[in-house]
Structures are given as C-alpha cells and as structure tokens.
Nucleic acid binder design. Structure first.
Lengths: 137, 137
DNA sequence: CGGTATCCCTTTAGATACTG
DNA sequence: CAGTATCTAAAGGGATACCG
C-alpha cells in the first residue's frame, strides 16, 4: 500500500492536516502487521525460537518466497532476530526481539478489541446486507 | 487480502493451531483499518459530521470511486453512519457510530505505540541496510 | 451533490524449479 | 536446509466520464 497516512503535521493524530508521505510511521507499522503473513510469524515466535522450515510447516499455504520476504521485513524492522549457524546443512533460527514482543502485545490488544466487538460488527453487516437485499426489489 | 489469519481454534490467540478462514474476525478488522483510506475517514469523522464532498476535499488524492467504496465498507461494518437527506441537490452526511469511536480509540493506541518505538524501528532499519550494503562488496 | 460505470495499471502474492 | 529466481495470476487502486 502506498501514500496517505494517518500522520498529522502536529503531534495530534486528530489534527486536520494529513500527511501523504509514504514514510509515515503509523502507515508503515500498519502495513507490516496487516500483510498476509507477518502476524502469523509474530504469533508463532511468541516465547519460542523456530527454524525456517518449522515456520513454513506451521503456516499453512505459505510459499518459501513469501516466508522469506516476510521474515526479512520483520528482521529489518527490528522485530525478529535471525541467527545463522554456519553448519551443513544450514541452520537458521528466528526469534522475537523485545521490540517484536512489544508489537505482539499491541496486536494482542487489537485482538481483544475485535473479540469484544465482533458481534456488533456481525450484526451491523447482517442489517446492512438485509437492507441492501430488500431495496434491490 | 485473503486467507490466513491470527485466529486460533481456541480462545487463545497464542495457540498453535492457525485458522486459514477468510472469515477470521481479526483479519477482517485489520484489513479494514489497513486499507488505504479507512483510517483517514475514521480520523476525519472524529467528533465531526462531514458530507461526501467535504471528505473528498479533505483527503488528498482520493477518487470518488475509492471514497465511496471506503465509506460503504465502514458503514457496512457499523463504524460509520450514513444519513441521506432527500433534498435537491442531495445532502449525505457521515459520522462515526459509537463502535467507530471505539475502533478509533484502539487505533490511537497503535499510533501511540508507533510514536514510542519509531526510533527503534528506524535504527534497526538503518543497521540492517548498512550491513546489507557492506556485505554487497 | 453524491455518487456509478468502465477501463487500465500497479502491486502483491502464488507456483514452481533450482542452488549453495 | 534455507533459501533464490522466474513467471504468472489476482487483487487493489487510479483516472475519467457520466447520471439521477
């Protein structure tokens, strides 16, 4: 995803001027946690060290290309630590950094919010779809 | 975005079994707040009612197609309320529902997390890029 | 004013074969 | 084992013209 972002020119998120820089920090974090596999990796590495193939087997449907790309981005952002052991066959281990743990905690509270409100959302959707269906006649 | 999701088969997010249903609630909420324009709309409607054109003018670069799609999804999820006044020319107003306010609060705490850790992330990236650059030689 | 409809392009992700 | 390379498919989003 690109441009616009909930970054304000001031310190206040609710300010009226919106930043459209791709560099916006909030947007970047959001893009990271919202991508298709990052959250799974973050959760699997919670209090646990896993190797590449272990991650791959634990995440149903991920291709080696996407898993590599995902862990590399997480590593680049300082959320995951990658350790290469110079042995044959190669052994590479992944674990969360303290920053990764912190983000995982943040995500947990989003999960909690979702659990608390999923019924409301579902009800809203049902009503919306029902009204849409009846006005189609 | 599609399939996999940080939904467990149990109540516990940290459980080991991962759900790959597109219906996962967490994934749906994440997809909503991570899309390109929803967060901007949510923030602009904070404590404020705005008309379609007002939103459009406030969000730099949004096309009518995307703005319509964005507010419709937010409305369907019960986050935004859309009120049509049967006058000519038409008048349509958007405002947050209590659920929308609640999600906006949740997002605010993500913003806060990001502000608190953006220096760490930036430092990690710099180091990663620096190492990548030097190992390229 | 508040949208829809249409077309097109870019980004993202999946499949698969291959390698140090 | 832990990836990389290449190709393809699909989703997301932009531009623009038009309509009730």
């Amino acid at each position: 995803m690109k441009l616009p972002s909930p970054c304000s020119d001031t310190e206040d998120y609710t300010a009226r001027q919106w930043d459209t820089r791709a560099e916006c920090e909030v947007r970047q974090v959001l893009d990271r946690i919202a991508d298709k596999w990052s959250l799974l990796v973050l959760a699997l590495l919670d209090r646990r060290t896993l190797r590449f193939t272990e991650l791959r087997r634990s995440i149903d449907g991920v291709s080696p290309r996407m898993l590599t790309s995902t862990v590399r981005q997480l590593e680049r952002d300082g959320l995951v630590e990658r350790t290469v052991y110079p042995v044959v066959p190669p052994r590479v281990e992944y674990r969360l950094t303290p920053l990764g743990v912190s983000l995982h905690d943040m995500v947990q509270s989003l999960v909690t919010w979702t659990e608390e409100h999923q019924d409301e959302i579902a009800a809203a959707r049902d009503e919306y779809d029902r009204k849409a269906a009846e006005s189609a006649y």
